[in-house]
Design a protein around this nucleic acid. Structure first.
Lengths: 145, 145
DNA sequence: CAAATAAAAGACTCTTTTATCTTAAATTAA
DNA sequence: TTAATTTAAGATAAAAGAGTCTTTTATTTG
């Protein structure tokens, strides 16, 4: 798996919040966990990380929940991935050799760095705004159902 | 990590065997584990899988060890990856949604399938023969050192 | 202020992956 | 045929990832 489970949940949750953010009220984590079919407590932990990283903002108490901390067009899926999984996928050697790079390359290095960059590009070109528009217009899925 | 640790060890080991296979004698797993700095017993299990999958052949007893089961130019790195990790990386949804595909795509599907295919292509175009030639000619690394 | 609500935080469990250790089986060679 | 060597197999352990449960803290509303 390219992304950890926590990371895919974080991306799905961010897109869910972006999609709801026309209503200016906070998005309930409980509702989101029901709709996305993600364990509530596990989701909570992931969202806490995204909040700590300045991607989401949260509010306790009745009518509380979470919101995007910045405008949806200023947050990319790469931002969410980096916040949860870090940049390992985009920097590591595909054969796991420490210190692999142009000076001391592994047998796959030159080919791998192009694929790795394509992967990063894929995540960086998609903003939450544009992606949630796609979801609405094309009827794309965010959950198991 | 795109590949499991077991899988990266399997690829490194296969390349090591290919590189040694000018000498027609069996390659010692013990020597290989020392040179590649991979735990002997863990490596043994991985090689057993590759043997079971028909990529390697083994021989017990003194002067025993392993060899490629086919010619190095007829084994690709993809073969090794599929034998150990299966085809999950090349078929799964990047957001982990079960049943994601062109009929019921996730928000990243269309972009992801191109990256996924590039990844498969990277592994499938490299034979053990060509890659071990590269290693010799360009002095590439197979181990931590 | 008190009660209800909802996120935050931390402890804990389960599963999978990675790694180690021990014993068994096969083969070679003296 | 016996001793040494080397892979095979299985049991166990350690670490990481995924998921659950309980308690605490902050906020709203009656």
């Amino acid at each position: 798996m390219v992304l950890s489970k926590a990371c895919t949940y974080g991306v799905l949750a961010s897109l869910y919040v972006a999609k709801q953010s026309e209503n200016k009220s906070y998005v309930s984590i409980r509702d989101m966990s029901n709709e996305l079919r993600i364990s509530f407590h596990f989701l909570t932990k992931i969202l806490q990380k995204l909040t700590a990283e300045g991607i989401l903002q949260s509010h306790k108490g009745p009518k509380g929940g979470i919101l995007l901390a910045r405008e949806a067009r200023n947050i990319t899926i790469l931002d969410v991935v980096l916040a949860i999984d870090g940049d390992k996928v985009f920097t590591e050697c595909v054969l796991g050799l420490p210190g692999c790079g142009s000076e001391r390359p592994c047998p796959m290095h030159n080919h791998w760095i192009t694929v790795r960059e394509d992967l990063r590009e894929m995540f960086s070109t998609k903003t939450l705004a544009a992606t949630s528009d796609d979801i609405r217009e094309l009827g794309l899925r965010l959950s198991i159902e």
